[in-house]
Simulated assay, not measured.
Amino acid sequence: MTAPTINGTRYPQPIEDLLPAARALPLSDGESFPSRNRLMREFRIGAPKAGELLTLLKTTPAAPPADTTDPATPDPAPAPATPEPAPPVVPDPLPAPEITPPEPVEQVAPVSHPDTPAPARSVVVWPVVLLALPAFVAIWSGWVGLGGLTGFGIVHPLPGIWDSFSINSAITLPIGVETYGAYALYVWLSGRVPDRARTFAKWSALGSLAIGALGQVAYHLLEAAGVTSAPWWITTAVACLPVAVLGMGAALAHLVRTHN
């Protein structure tokens, strides 16, 4: 059951009616005015109304006591003040967040740096052709001559089919050994192959170039000595070259296409 307010009614009281009762509240030592929480508790009012009442207490001076015509007649005792029930305190709603539109992004023009060097032009490779022509003549003649000293010569690869067709098998030496050496050197230095293929190309290219150099040395030494038939160990080594070139070429082609 709701308790009556200071004037006996259960309806909320105006600030002007609560102000005298608030002034009459007893204060402890050091207090000039009752606190807002005490006003809410005593009069059962909400925080906004208690704050307004406290402001009036601080800003409005107390009215002087009214004169009575008959001092012997005591004033009627006022009705006991019953605080009104305080309404539930509802927290103030939070302000909606302010949405700021995104600022336009300023387009910055690219800054040109005059000191930046121009991209370098690729180096021409046509002089390699001039370098390769004399080397091709010397290497070709050396391998063909060594092939003639080790049993390579004119053969008929298509007997019974094309009897008149013949070929000098000595040309297989410069084509196989030197072509593989150049290809393996390119694979090694390109840097665009797996590590296993690059390692194999490196050592096989160096080995192929070394064998080519030894073949040229052997031919010129035998030719200078007037030898018409190479020793057996040179013949054996030269005869194995086409097979070795075939195996290394197939292995390198396989490694180039792997991903590990």
Rank of each mutant, 00 (worst) to 15 (best):
Q107Y: 14
A138T: 09
G176F: 09
P76F: 06
G191K: 08
F200P: 01
R121N: 05
D29T: 10
V124H: 05
V187K: 00
G181T: 02
P104T: 10
D163G: 12
N168V: 02
T228L: 09
P95T: 14
V177Y: 00
V217S: 07
A230V: 09
L27V: 09
H156N: 14
P80W: 01
A218W: 11
S112E: 12
P110A: 13
L57T: 05
A3Y: 06
T100F: 11
R192I: 00
L189C: 06
L57F: 02
T116Y: 13
E106K: 08
M248I: 10
R257Y: 04
V227K: 04
L189I: 08
S112Y: 15
A118I: 08
E84P: 04
Y183P: 00
T199H: 07
R23G: 02
D115A: 12
T235R: 15
H156I: 02
R192N: 11
R10S: 12
P76G: 08
T69C: 07
A77D: 14
T236L: 13
P93L: 09
F136Y: 13
V90C: 02
Y186P: 00
P101D: 12
P110E: 10
L158A: 13
L149H: 01
A135Y: 10
A72S: 14
L241A: 11
L19T: 02
L131E: 13
T82M: 08
D92H: 05
A251Y: 05
P85L: 15
S166R: 12
G191H: 08
V123Q: 05
A66V: 10
L149C: 08
N7S: 11
A24Q: 12
V105T: 10
L57I: 08
M40A: 04
S28R: 13
A253I: 07
I154F: 03
L206C: 04
V128R: 07
H254G: 06
A244R: 05
A210V: 12
P65K: 09
W232M: 10
L146W: 02
V128T: 08
L222A: 08
P127L: 05
N260G: 11
E16I: 02
E31V: 07
V137C: 08
F152T: 02
P61L: 09
R23S: 03
H156G: 11
V238M: 13
Y186C: 07
P85C: 03
P104G: 07
T73E: 11
A86K: 09
L146F: 09
G30D: 12
A253H: 06
A132T: 10
L25K: 08
F43K: 00
F136P: 00
I161N: 07
P91A: 15
I45Y: 01
A239C: 03
T100V: 15
E42R: 12
G191V: 04
Y11Q: 15
P76A: 14
G30C: 05
P110I: 06
G247Q: 07
V243M: 13
L39Y: 00
P104N: 11
P97Q: 15
R44E: 14
A63M: 07
L130Q: 05
A109R: 11
G51L: 03
C240Y: 13
T199I: 06
T172N: 11
P174A: 12
